[in-house]
Design a protein around this nucleic acid. Sequence first.
DNA 1: GCGTTGACGCGGG
DNA 2: TCCCGCGCCAACG
Length: 106
Amino acid sequence: MIQINRVMKESYQRIWQTVQAIPAGNVASYGQIADLAGLPGRARLVGTALKNSDEGRFQNRAIPWHRVVNSQGKISFPRQSPIYQQQVARLQEEQVIVLNGKVKLR
DNA sequence: GCGTTGACGCGGG
DNA sequence: TCCCGCGCCAACG
């Protein structure tokens, strides 16, 4: 984790909880998460919060970060990166179709 | 304190 | 579709 003030920690917690609420097999955009977390226009903060989550968990519960993509439905990681491959693999396990780094809508 | 980065989003060209 | 620029703003050096 990192050093952050109380206000920021609360924002992070709301973001983590919101992400945890995304059902398996579904995806949401950073902007949507920000809105739902009561932080409109703060999409970047969602990415920061996920990056700074404690080992991908919050309150001893896993945060399904792989279900978060950008507003274009695309994965926000370089194609070659291991993390990118990880996200695609996890999504496919949930029957989510990913083509050329982009999630297929149903 | 200050400049740079970045798991973003949106409008333009 | 790709590439910019701009707004946004916490984290980091």
